[in-house]
Amino acid sequence: MTYTATSTSTALEVPAAPTVGYWAGVWRRLRRDPVSLICAAILLALIFCAIFAPWLGFADPYTGSMIARLKPIGTPGHILGTDELGRDMLARLIYGGRLTLFLGITPVVAAFVIGTSLGLIAGYVGGWVNSMIMRVTDIFFAFPSVLLAIAISGALGAGVVNSLVSLTIVFIPPITRVAESVTASVRKLDYVDAARASGAGNFTIVRVQVLGNVLGPIFVYATSLTSVCMIISAGLSFLGLGVKPPEPEWGLMLNTLRTAIYINPWVAALPGMMIFITSLCLNLLSDGLRSAMNVRQ
């Protein structure tokens, strides 16, 4: 039995563009989006400074000077002025970035791992498992996230670890919900049915066919949560439930400088500016990622 491919059964079709992998395509689209690129650059610079702060030759963020208190922006030796205890603002903002970014990112990463797992299970298994997981999630949704964080932190007591825990708990429900809805929609697609029809087990299907297609959207959503998380953690510090003085942290700095707002408003506003810029960049970047990851265009 021989089989010759005749011209009619051969798909001699358009020589399409050279193969581009999925992530290469995402990167190509992202590269044409100046807003996302600028945001990514700012965030990378912030993270770089935060990590390498001790080696970048900044002033000591803990040493103050009673004579050099609340100096305005542009003071020689203190480019961004000083705070109410005469500590260099630039150094404190940079060092503050370490804690703030850590507190903003870690809970989201933890919630991403836990929420994605829960959402995958709920969305893929469906039925009563879904109902159970999602109804519990709904209970958490009844509380505004800020209040929930304050309540949990208040119950656990002040401190960095406790605010990490409370923030993680706050962000598990929204991530679970997004993961569940994305998984449920992917699960309905024919390629999952085709995989089932080829005899693959549920674990294999989730790992090979589902995971890769749901992680992207969940990741983008989690990116946008990072800014919320930073703001709430700043809020916790502001209320005295998070980081304790004299640690530099943007929310805490905002709190302690609050009294100086009439004396030197620009310096007092700086930590707020940092929170604002960082969360704005995170939000814009997640928007950019979302559109870059849209395959069908």
Binding site: Y191, D193, A194, S198, T204
Partner: peptide, 25 residues
Amino acid sequence: FQDSFASLNPRMTIEETIAFGPKVN
């Protein structure tokens, strides 16, 4: 299936897609 797009995993090369069935078996 009818929908040629929905029945292929967008993250897998077509070679991987075809090889998936034999592999799980």
